[in-house]
C-alpha cells in the first residue's frame, strides 16, 4: 500500500470531537458526499424495482390460467407455433406493459431525464426475468386461486431487500441473490448518482445471464406441464 493509493480518495485528518485527545485514526473518503434525494423521490427506485419490474410476475400467471380456462392452450397445442413463441410472447407483452408503466411513473415523478433509457433497460431485463419466473412456477398450479397465495409469499421474499434500502448498513447474506436488491440500488444510483461507476454493465450482464438460464428452464417446464398435458 503506498501513499499514491491514499491520495486516490479525499483524505483528511479527523479532528472532530474526542475532547482534545489525540485521535488514533483518520478517514479516507473514496468519493465526495453527494446530495441525498428527498424522501418522496427516493421511493421512485423502489417502486420501479418492486412495482414496475415485477408486474409481469403477477400478470403472466393470470394470463396462463385464463387461457387454460378458455381452452386457448388446447388450441395453441394444435397450432404450428411452438413453446418458444408461447413463452416469448408472454414475456414480451408483459415487458412492454412494464415499460409503459415505468415511463409514466418516471416522467410524472421526476420528468424526462437522460438516464431514462438506462433505467428502462434494467426494468425491461428484470421484467423479462420475473415474467419468465412467474410462468415457470405458475404452470405447476391448477388455478390462479391456488397460485395467488404462493405468489403473495414470493412477493414478500422479493420485497425483503426494502429493509436494506431504508437501512443501508444492514444487508442479510442472501439479499444480493434476490434480484430486487441490486435492481433498487442500481436504479437509485442511475437516477440520483453518487458517483459510483462500473456497476451498470455487470448488472446488465448478470440479469441477462439469469434471463437465459430461466428461459431454458421455463422452456422445459412449459413444454412438459402446459404443452403436453391434457389440460
Amino acid at each position: 500500500m503506498d501513499e499514491a493509493r491514499l491520495e486516490e480518495g479525499i483524505s483528511f485528518w479527523n479532528t472532530a470531537g474526542n475532547l482534545g485527545q489525540p485521535v488514533t485514526y483518520r478517514q479516507e473518503l473514496l468519493r465526495p458526499a453527494s446530495e441525498k434525494p428527498p424522501f418522496n423521490l427516493n421511493l421512485l427506485p423502489m417502486l420501479l424495482a418492486l412495482e414496475v419490474a415485477m408486474l409481469g410476475f403477477f400478470f403472466v400467471a393470470a394470463l396462463v390460467f385464463q387461457e387454460k380456462e378458455e381452452g386457448s392452450i388446447r388450441a395453441f397445442r394444435v397450432s404450428p407455433a411452438g413453446t418458444w413463441p408461447y413463452i416469448l410472447s408472454k414475456a414480451v407483452s408483459n415487458v412492454l406493459l412494464s415499460l409503459l408503466y415505468g415511463v409514466l411513473l418516471f416522467v410524472f415523478t421526476i420528468g424526462l431525464r437522460p438516464e431514462l433509457p438506462a433505467v428502462l433497460l434494467l426494468v425491461a431485463l428484470a421484467g423479462f426475468l420475473m415474467t419468465t419466473v412467474g410462468l415457470t412456477i405458475g404452470v405447476f398450479f391448477k388455478s390462479l386461486s391456488e397460485f395467488v397465495y404462493i405468489l403473495a409469499g414470493i412477493m414478500v421474499v422479493i420485497s425483503l431487500p426494502v429493509v436494506s434500502y431504508f437501512l443501508p448498513s444492514f444487508r442479510a447474506a442472501f439479499f444480493p441473490f434476490i434480484p430486487t436488491y441490486p435492481l433498487m440500488f442500481g436504479i437509485r444510483e442511475l437516477i440520483f448518482s453518487t458517483g459510483k461507476t462500473g456497476f451498470y454493465l455487470p448488472m446488465l450482464l448478470i440479469l441477462a445471464a439469469e434471463v437465459l438460464v430461466i428461459l431454458v428452464l421455463s422452456r422445459v417446464v412449459v413444454e412438459r406441464k402446459l404443452m403436453k398435458e391434457g389440460h
Binding site: M1, E3, L6, G9, I10, N14, T24, Y25, R26, Q27, E28, L29, L30, R31, P32, A33, S34, S164, P168, S169, F170, R171, Y181, P182, F185, G186, E189, T194, G195, K196
Partner: peptide, 20 residues
C-alpha cells in the same frame, strides 16, 4: 451498495475507509 466501513492499518495509523 450497502453502507460498510473499511479499516486498514498503514504507516503507523489506522484508516477508516468510507465510500463517502
Amino acid at each position: 451498495f450497502d453502507d460498510v466501513a473499511g479499516i486498514y492499518y498503514y504507516g503507523g495509523e489506522y484508516i477508516v475507509l468510507l465510500e463517502g
